[in-house]
Design a binder for these strands. Structure first.
Lengths: 195, 195
DNA sequence: GTCTATAAGGAGATAGAC
DNA sequence: GTCTATCTCCTTATAGAC
């Protein structure tokens, strides 16, 4: 791993834990094992380093896949589909890099310090889009009651978003516990909307 | 208004907007119209000032009432009850002081900088407790399906929490729009759980 | 590419006059 | 209680040797 990559890795870790402003270039350098000034050989400024992390994370978030071919074929068994979908979402969300990125993003969003081109909605857009397609299909099959796709998507997602925020803040989570919680909510949701 | 009160007012405003660390004692003093050193006549340190704001906010949150006698009598008309309950919650949540305090809290919680004695759950404990009582009553009356009170409470609350986070981040909201969104979700929720 | 040294400025906090 | 002046430390960033 090059020093440039190490810098990005440590920066993400520290930005996520302490926030952008509370993380100094000195801290990043120390964690990498180089001097502060060496960082400026790779990035013109602290802000540019941050923006590159945002850019990387944005691409990763947009590329994240919460669904595959096999799962789409499970749509005729919605309960099973949702179980697998939830597992996939939690699997992606609990990856260390994803957690650090989201935490860094949310902190930056809350205090209007650094401007950057990624909204909170962008973080959940991938899942929302899939959900709306899924509900459309389920409705066509006559499996669910007739509600607005967007409303259904928000209702399904909200408890998961709250769950995610909670474990990001606590900086600790038991993956099994998170999974159980998410499955319970998905199961409740399905019970409500099924025909 | 005394200078001490002014200091607290401006500090809350700035901590909410920029976060604890990104707000300097100098900024607070400037907004009040005094010199930095004068602040130390009222508070031994920046941290103490912050902790006093947390203490005040905590008391306010714990004292917040989302329900009254008349509303409890509406429990035999749950749909109307939930409409009024939602209106009350949004009314409390959209108050300037409440918004600033919550935003300050969440920022402080996300970057584990200052330690203080208030969890994110505390912020929503008041509403959760009422909801669990409400669901207990509604079940006794035979109005709703038999689900765990805690699960129902979380499902009801989650979309509202997400809504709150969203408008805190955007720092702007149209109260009518927020109300419509909240009512729509409450109405959906009621449709699902009613017998 | 990394180092040492340093600049320039902002931070929290204090001393002492009024 | 507020002021001016100041201390000490930490910040981002740069210059120039190796």
């Amino acid at each position: 791993m090059t020093n440039r990559e190490k810098i990005k890795q440590e920066a993400l870790k520290l930005f996520a834990e302490f926030g952008y402003h509370q993380t100094s270039v000195r801290m990043i350098a120390k964690n990498v094992g180089i001097r502060e000034s060496a960082i400026y050989n790779h990035f013109p400024s602290k802000k540019d380093l941050f923006l590159e992390l945002v850019h990387d994370g944005k691409k990763r978030v947009q590329a994240a896949s919460y669904i595959n071919e096999e799962m789409l074929e499970l749509l005729n068994n919605p309960e099973l589909f949702f179980t697998q979908f939830i597992d996939k979402v939690i699997e992606v969300w609990t990856k260390l890099e994803e957690r650090m990125f989201t935490k860094m993003m949310i902190q930056a969003k809350f205090n209007s310090s650094v401007e950057f081109d990624l909204t909170l909605n962008d973080l959940f857009a991938g899942i929302s889009n899939i959900l709306e397609i899924v509900f459309e299909e389920l409705r066509n099959y006559g499996y669910i009651k007739d509600y607005d796709n967007e409303l259904l998507s928000e209702q399904f997602l909200a408890p998961l978003v709250v769950l995610k925020f909670r474990f990001l803040i606590n900086n600790f989570f038991d993956k099994e516990q998170v999974l159980n919680y998410a499955r319970k909510h998905a199961s409740f949701f399905w019970e409500q909307i099924k025909l």
